[in-house]
Amino acid sequence: MSLPEVLLWQILRKQPGYVKFRRQHPIGRYVLDFYVLELKLAIEIDGVGHDMGDRPERDDSRDQWLESQGIRMLRIAAKDVLADPAGVADSIVRVCTER
């Protein structure tokens, strides 16, 4: 796990808002940073590597496949997590509890 993922996991693993998060969850040939099974919600933390080379195209392909499986994708910039992990965690929980 990257540093932003570790910082976020330290908060999400406590199941804020009674939402159960899974980390490094495999689905098909992919491994999701975080996943909420009950909501079929994938959460990906994107660092600068996601903007390089063919990575944007691979991310798009992955997102399309996940959507075809009924899984919604929530992408969050790693810099946002580094700047305010608690704020990002609160936003994620809010998205989960509003569904």
Rank of each mutant, 00 (worst) to 15 (best):
R29V: 10
I45F: 01
D54W: 10
L66R: 10
L39V: 07
Y30P: 09
Y35N: 04
D33I: 05
S61Q: 13
L37I: 12
E67W: 05
F34E: 05
V48A: 12
Q64P: 00
D59N: 14
V36H: 03
L66V: 12
S68F: 10
I71W: 02
Q69L: 15
M52I: 08
E44R: 03
L32R: 07
E44L: 02
V48F: 13
V36R: 08
K40Y: 08
G28V: 06
R58G: 00
E44C: 01
S61V: 02
V48I: 11
E67L: 13
R62P: 02
R58P: 08
R62E: 06
L41P: 04
V36C: 04
D51R: 14
I43D: 05
G47S: 13
R58S: 06
A42K: 01
E67G: 00
E67V: 03
W65G: 00
E38R: 14
G70T: 09
E57S: 09
D33T: 00
V36D: 00
D33F: 00
G28P: 06
I43Y: 02
R29C: 11
V48G: 07
Y35T: 01
I71K: 05
Y35C: 05
M52G: 00
A42C: 11
D63K: 08
G70F: 04
I71E: 09
R29L: 11
D51I: 00
R58T: 07
S61I: 04
Y35Q: 03
F34I: 05
D54K: 12
G28D: 12
I43A: 03
E38D: 15
R29E: 14
D59P: 10
L32P: 01
E44I: 05
